[in-house]
Nucleic acid binder design. Sequence first.
DNA 1: GCCGTTTTCGGCCCGACTGTTTTCAGTCG
Length: 575
Amino acid sequence: MPIHNEDIAVIFDEMADLLDIENANPFRVRAYRNAARTIRGLGHELEQMLANGTDLTTLQGIGTSLAAKIEEIIASGHAEALDKLHKEVPASLEDLLHIPGLGPKRVRVLYQDLNIKTLKQLQHAASSGQLRKLPGFGAKTEQRILESIKSQRSQDKRFLHHTAHLYADPLVTYLEAVPGVKQVVVAGSYRRGQETVGDLDILVSAKDDSPVMQQFVDYDEVTEVISKGSTRATVFLRNGLQVDLRVVELQSFGAALHYFTGNKAHNIKIRKLAQQRGLKINEYGVFRGDKRISGKTEESIFKAVGLPYIQAELRNGDQEIKAAQQHKLPELITYGDLKGDLHVHSKASDGHASIEEMARSARKLGLKYIAITDHSQSLKVAHGLDEARLHKQLEAIDRLNAKFSDFKILKGSEVDILEDGRLDYHDSILSQLDIVIVAVHSKFHLSRARQTTRILRAIESKYITMLAHPSGRLLGERSAYDVDMSRVITAASERGCYLELNSQPQRLDLNDTYCQQAKQQGVLVSINSDAHGPADFDNLAGGIHQARRGWLEKRDVLNSRPLGQLIKLLNATRC
DNA sequence: GCCGTTTTCGGCCCGACTGTTTTCAGTCG
């Protein structure tokens, strides 16, 4: 069975948790956590790197001991050191760590003094008032633990970026209207454009006498106030989203924005660079001794450590700092660079607007072309078009195009890849289309070998233009099907076709890592909305975030091309 | 457990808030 990086990272995280509870050297604990973080951000499978003879100790935070453990896990599927820890500390204690307010020290007390090992035992002890007698615990802590178990807040719920946006936007508007407020920005993973966010970090600069903190906790969506100080507060909104508010002075705003945008690994690296220059960076600025030398803007923070500005989406503490030092940062694609959308449905299949409505909506947003790509005949559930209906649609598109002088509707289809890799229409049909998107909509559970062969065969087909939502995942609902994506990207490169970055909020697929691989192999990516109605064109903004996290520039994106160039590139896929 | 352009030993990012204390530990981000 292949061992993925995530499997190894999970083991190291668990070891860190258990060592923490064991009261091990905190820096040893941190070493495991750092290693887990490094591994998650690698972008290449460790198993593959090892097979290629890579020396793992060259990786950040991996020394001889952890490299040996990685090899052990890849070879055997487990780590003896973790097995040993399990004999000393019950694995279930890890669950207790996820309760807000419970850290390693208190979990250790719970286990040693009351032999509490599970959430259920914890709930029982809290209900019967036993916790408040423990050292370091009190009645309030006991109450909070009980409430948190009841509300299942410990489940670490994450929200789609798209969903968080729906709540962030009105809250920002609300805060901006508070007297004395000068600036409001949502930082954190939201600003970095992550697919999902665990909470919202909102940064505000305001006059000293501004009532912003009080107004924040009085916001009518707030159901619970966790903490509230003079510069920081934490609340929960009705939908369970946690929101942290921080208030800083204008002169510190850039430093705070950088600090609270993160990610953590990025911040730590930037701080270390500062240390090497005899400087100290915190959320209030850059300091030499006690003297603040900058902090008003993010640019000034980067400048202080000798770096050019690094876009928020790139800040994951992995490659971006080295690239910045070498002046090799990408000039990231922006929303305005998009010229069209190559994956759009109409009500002929499972969309809910006419082709003309979709075209006019796209045109209104400034796009110059769309491709109508309704589903093919096998996808009955989405009213896939048979050959006769598709023919009629092509004629209708001809008639519509005659109405536009500055906009083009391309003829396309989202063609099902059948179980054996054949396509759902004959070549004679496909040859009449401007664009053929192929996609998997069934048989998600094939073995890795069969799924990969299936998709590679589809890519080899004479008329295909691009592969849509290549991994098939739905965030929070369905994981990716098991496919060797690196082979798919290489095949697309050799075949000379394109890959989609589907902008639906729960897809965002290709993901960032594979976008970068596609770029490295010269495969153009198309950022498509997969719109089923006019409002869905808004999804493109999320696709842009994802593309930026994948280091894509304008030149790497197929639908950044004006129509004339695009058509040449579409024709070039016909082999 | 990792790391090193003063170091192979002795450091390791840093500050706010809460609750339980009586000056601070634990937790969190």
